[in-house]
């Protein structure tokens, strides 16, 4: 079983506690096919949590287990402090599935009304909530048109509105920007930011690493049905990859450079790379090299993108052939 990956500060398994999701060794087999081997993670209250992995890694199945749409074959989990599948808890959760679809003879407004009723909302509060959400997802003008006339992007946006109809504490978004144009993606990003401001926890499953990088506080990487790494983006994104060309490049220089970062690697006769904790290391390295009277031909630091993290963590075997 892998080590639990969670926010830096732990907390008890209680409703209202710091964690809204806690799983321990959740496991799912479909017949003889392993879908999720070990889902062990914790998601803190109010976090925007990115769930990353290649196709077939078990991301959607993991979300479905947390929503009790599929039954785990092993392990345990709590959502909002209650066991998976607790019906009352589902009233506090929103969910946008991947490729949202619904009865296309309904209008957007009717769809939201129907989902509101399933949350036992009714009357003026429901109608007001519907109007607010329709305006927020920019579908007021299309509200009374049938879904069969909606574009893919409009369907995603009305799907997002239905996920928020109950003003949830926790929202699962499975590829929310799928099918959206850049403006639509921006709208979703803004809405996620608004949810963060309201203290809503967002569990975001997305292939678009740029989107995740822009919106998430923390991410977990899932590989072959197992959570292999989690990290806080704000902390990790401070890291810079430093590359320098210097001569002469001897053992003493390499040893000395180790004080500025980790993973010091000599790439060629005069090129060396290292990973520093922040950009402040770059001028410090320059000063240290000059003080040692070394010839510096090039020195630059570059922040690591989430895509680079992703490729590093997933390894070559996960890249499409």
């Amino acid at each position: 079983m892998s080590e639990r990956v969670g926010p830096p500060e732990g907390g008890p398994y209680v409703d209202g506690g710091p964690y809204v999701i806690e799983t321990d060794g959740l496991h799912k087999m479909f017949g003889r096919t392993l879908a999720v081997e070990d889902l062990s993670l914790s998601v803190g209250r109010g976090e925007i949590f990115g769930f990353l992995g290649p196709n077939g890694a078990g991301k959607t199945t993991s979300i479905k287990m947390l929503l009790a749409l599929v039954t785990p074959t092993g392990g345990r989990g709590l959502v909002l402090g209650k066991p998976l599948g607790d019906r009352a808890t589902r009233a506090r959760i929103g969910f946008l599935p991947e490729h949202f679809r619904f009865h296309d003879s309904l209008t957007g407004r009717e769809l939201l009304r129907f989902h509101g009723r399933l949350h036992r909302l009714a009357g003026l509060p429901l109608e007001a909530r519907i109007d607010t959400l329709l305006a927020r997802v920019d579908l007021i003008e299309a509200a009374d048109r049938r879904l069969r006339g909606y574009s893919k992007g409009m369907l995603q946006r009305i799907g997002l509105a239905q996920a928020l109809i109950n003003d949830p504490e926790l929202v699962f978004l499975d590829e929310p920007t799928s099918g959206l144009d850049p403006l639509g993606r921006l709208l979703v990003r803004d809405m996620i930011a608004e949810l963060r401001d309201r203290g809503t926890t967002v569990f975001l499953n997305s292939h678009l690493l740029g989107e995740v990088e822009a919106t998430c506080d923390r991410v977990a990487f899932v590989k072959q049905g197992r959570v292999v790494h989690a990290m806080a983006l704000r902390e990790e994104s401070q890291c810079v990859d430093v590359e320098l060309r210097v001569a002469p490049l001897d053992a003493a220089t390499l040893t000395g450079l180790a004080q500025f970062g980790t993973d010091v690697t000599q790439v060629s006769a005069d090129v060396v790379r290292l990973r520093a904790a922040s950009e402040d290391a770059v001028p410090a390295i320059a000063r240290w090299l000059v003080a040692r009277h070394l010839n510096v031909y090039a020195l630059h630091g570059r922040r690591r993108t989430l895509e680079e993290w992703f490729l590093d963590i997933m390894g070559d075997d996960q890249r499409p052939g």
Binding site: K64, L67, A68, L69, R87, A88, T89, R90, A91, I93, F95, P97, E98, H99, F100, R101, F102, H103, H115, L118, H119, R120, G159, Q162
Partner: peptide, 14 residues
């Protein structure tokens, strides 16, 4: 098959 049921079953209903 269409995925509609996932949305419905995730609501607070039996």
């Amino acid at each position: 098959d269409s995925g509609v049921m996932q949305t419905l079953a995730s609501k607070p209903v039996r």
